[in-house]
Simulated assay, not measured.
Amino acid sequence: MLDFLYNYLPDRFCVCTVRAFSTPSSFVNVVTRLMFKVSGSLLRDFSEVEKLQGAEKSLKKFVSDAECRVEKVLYNGLKESYPGYAFLMEEGGYIAGEESNSPTWIIDPLDGSNNFSKGIPYFSISVSLYERQDFVMGVIYDPIRDEVFWAQKGVGAFLDQYKLRLSQKRPRNYIAMALPGPRHTPDQCQHILSLFHLLPDTLFRSFGSTALHLAYVSAGRLDASIEYSTRIWDSAAGIAIIREAGGKVSHQFTGPLQALKSSDIVAGHPEIYHTLCGILPVRQS
């Protein structure tokens, strides 16, 4: 069933090669080179998941192994290029840098792992750089669509080479908004129901990848995104990209990274964001 997808993927996904990609940011250039390098093996793994459907334990281990392989390539490559930096990774946890205030790489090797395990082609690789309690750089790579969303503080936000800048005008007569996945608390369910009631002309979507939800907000494909109890590696890159694109984001990720657990996220076009802040219990930031 997935053969058609893999057979028609670009050739660069079938081998670990690096496509031409250059930005003004040396950080972004290093990160994207590593992402392209590992994308071939990740997509080969994706083409195999159908064979494991129904074998839950085997499938879970297969997906976990795929995540670990991606994370290992990113960790080793960034450690070689930036010795002394700290790391916070979904699989590997926190690894201290040479100094207590060392810049920290935040890595999510596979955001949208549930989609990946079900053969749904909607997932991403996400890397961010955290320095002086701020997300100063972020890259989100969608290997299926071969799209790179990236930003560096003071440089701007981009989709590949195209600069992203959200209009100051209200986007359209209706709102396209991403909602979080399952496992909501009763209060969170009430908040979502209130959105259905108060924003009747809204297209609600849930695609299953926090990073891509936020990337799509930065590109204007979505007008807003709400995420509940998201981990920092899911959202760090998206926060950096949305801010550089002129969007607004609220979160509770402050303080030492190793102490951070999770946060609710509200992000969007400035006007839509402020509308949501009037409905939801949001601490604006």
Rank of each mutant, 00 (worst) to 15 (best):
F4A: 03
F13N: 15
C14T: 12
T17V: 14
V18Y: 10
F21S: 07
V28H: 13
T32G: 02
T32L: 05
L34I: 13
K37S: 14
V38I: 10
G40I: 04
G40T: 05
G40D: 07
S41D: 11
S41M: 07
L43W: 00
L43H: 02
D45L: 04
D45K: 11
F46E: 05
E48K: 11
E48R: 10
L52C: 03
Q53I: 13
K60F: 01
F62S: 09
E67Q: 12
V70Q: 03
K72G: 06
G77F: 07
L78A: 09
E80L: 06
G84C: 06
A86N: 08
A86T: 06
F87H: 09
M89S: 13
E90S: 07
G92I: 00
I95S: 00
G97V: 12
E99L: 13
N101K: 12
I106N: 04
L110Q: 06
N114D: 15
N115P: 05
F116V: 09
Y122W: 14
F123P: 00
S126N: 11
L129C: 01
L129Y: 00
Y130S: 01
F135I: 02
Y141A: 03
I144H: 01
E147H: 13
W150Y: 07
W150S: 03
G154I: 12
L164T: 12
S167K: 05
Q168K: 11
R170N: 06
R172M: 05
I175W: 11
L179V: 12
P180Y: 04
G181R: 15
G181I: 14
P182W: 11
Q190S: 12
I192M: 15
T202W: 06
R205F: 08
T210W: 08
A211Y: 14
L212E: 02
H213K: 02
Y216H: 03
A237V: 02
A240N: 00
I242H: 03
A245E: 05
K248D: 01
V249Q: 01
S250L: 10
Q252S: 00
G255I: 01
A259N: 15
L260Y: 08
I265G: 05
E271G: 08
G278K: 13
G278L: 06
I279G: 02
I279Y: 04
V282M: 01
